[in-house]
Nucleic acid binder design. Structure first.
Lengths: 307, 307
DNA sequence: TATTCCGATAGTGAC
DNA sequence: GTCACTATCGGAATGAG
């Protein structure tokens, strides 16, 4: 299982016109940069919001506006490949996560990032950040408990923590893959990797793990237990509503390190969001002005990437 | 002036394929009923919302859905004739009524119903009922006063009352013209008029004057004094918002008989609408459900006409 | 705090 | 309550035989 996970983590950017995988630290062919530029250039806002699965194909969200060149270069997804809501997921309402835990194989690799006996990891159907994965425990008992109750079980909690570590590493790795070449602190590593004579030991580069958040929502709407693992930029097309933003930027998001919660911890019964929306990066108060906040977050994302 | 007004009142249904006017009680030719059926049939929802002016041409609001026959029969308005907002009116904001009082001749006859030295009567640009006229005093001093203050002047008030009587009669006459043939109580009169041997004295028919409302808004938004004169059905496409409805169905609408107001009358400083919306005809409470109310009002209009 | 659809609510800008 | 535009806010349904 760990071997499979490792392989996954190192799967580079994929399109149908690239080999399906390259090995761990292998030097990328220079021509790969063309593909990278066509789809990963955040300046063009065309990066995919999903982490590639084992046989994934690249896709673009509807909000993408590829220019003429990228339009020519990119692989047009077929209806089957398209990573859209399906009858099984969207129309199942609050039980929409059940199908993943029961039959992960029935979903396209763009949706299910990986799965093992105890967990399924998927790309959130409505990502609220550039990268947004869900870690779904498959245990059908724990599955339908409120997370605050399920995590009273020490063993289950520990299992989730272990798996969450892997998912966090996946997100960090994906951040580097997508944005590393725009990051000042990642540049030494990138340049070493792409040099004609790469060193045996790469420079560490940027610690993207610091830009990963995770935890459960104190009052989830979906009935199956899901652990959010996402980048902290909060920029995505489906990020539309006040509660979307606040659910990841307040203590409504409860990290696994807080569990088990005390019996009287208020996060066992969180009710609503009285708070203003504050930019996660600069702290500016946007009150309830979602449109203004979204513009601002897009700007902050660029700055954040360039760090 | 009175002669001109009388002529106006008796101008029958008009299209470009009919003579511009017929005299007072003159017997209508039978073929006129074809025109009446084509444009006045409320069952087809094709009546114009505007009262014809002296040289008016018939028009249809965008919401009209004429059937194939009426489509063939009717005169298609040109862009110039079209009774749409103009730069002069709409873009003048709160002063949009000024232009009518200053230069009524510059407007098409579909807009200005009539004018004399002291008053201009127009079709409301956004009618809130099947028929909705505005009586505009031209006096440039009184003009820009709040109506509650302007009507403290007894002579001005009396002048407005006299003119309002005429406008109310115009609206009543227009109601008969449009809806009389669908009205049970108006039928004896209609049948007498259309008979081969009409009596010298027509039966009185329905008293449409009872279906006319008028008055000023206690807190008008438009800066020029305007007296609303309208049918009580409250059915129109521009009737969209809660305040539209409540402004005509509560004591926010103040009839001229109430003036001059006592110095401390609350209607001198009306603030807001705390009220639910009640159907003017059956009293049903629609709370703040505007869509539901609109559906209901359309049904009530049909019943009301058939009375 | 699943989304989507519809509709009600609120602020602004027009000149 | 001038409208029109944008956006925010608020409830209800969401599947299927």
């Amino acid at each position: 299982m760990r071997g499979s996970f490792q392989a996954l983590r190192t799967i580079p950017f994929q399109t149908s016109i690239r080999p399906k995988s390259t090995k761990g630290r292998a030097k990328r062919p220079k021509m790969a940069s063309q593909n990278v530029a066509s789809a990963d250039d955040f300046g063009e806002h065309v990066e995919s919001t999903s982490v590639p699965g084992k046989q994934s194909t690249e896709r673009f969200p509807r909000s993408s506006r590829p220019n003429a060149f990228t339009e020519l270069m990119r692989h047009k997804p077929t209806a089957q490949e398209a990573d859209k809501p399906t009858q099984k997921t969207v129309f199942a309402g609050r039980d929409g996560l059940a199908a993943y835990t029961i039959d992960p194989e029935s979903f396209p690799p763009t949706r299910v990032v990986y799965h093992n006996e105890r967990f399924v990891v998927i790309n959130d159907l409505y990502p609220k950040a550039s990268i947004h994965l869900l870690l779904l425990p498959r245990d059908p008992i724990k599955n339908v408990m409120r997370p605050q109750d399920a995590f009273d079980d020490a063993q289950f909690l520990e299992d989730c923590r272990q798996e969450e570590k892997k998912v966090r590493a996946t997100v960090a790795s994906e951040l580097r893959r997508r944005f590393g070449k725009h990051s000042a602190s990642d540049r030494p590593r990138i340049e070493a990797m792409e040099s004609d004579d790469p060193p045996d030991e790469l420079p560490p580069g940027r610690d993207w793990a610091q830009d990963v958040m995770s935890g459960i929502h104190a009052n989830p709407s979906m009935s199956h237990l899901h652990i959010h693992v996402l980048s902290k930029d909060m920029v995505s097309e489906p990020m539309k509503k006040r509660n979307h933003y606040l659910s990841f930027t307040t203590d409504f998001l409860v990290g696994l390190e807080h569990f088990p919660l005390a019996k009287d911890d208020y996060r066992r019964r969180y009710t609503h969001f009285p708070e203003d929306m504050l930019c996660w990066r600069c702290g500016e108060n946007f009150g309830n002005k979602m449109s203004k906040l979204k513009e601002h977050l897009a700007m902050e994302k660029e700055q954040w990437i360039r760090e």
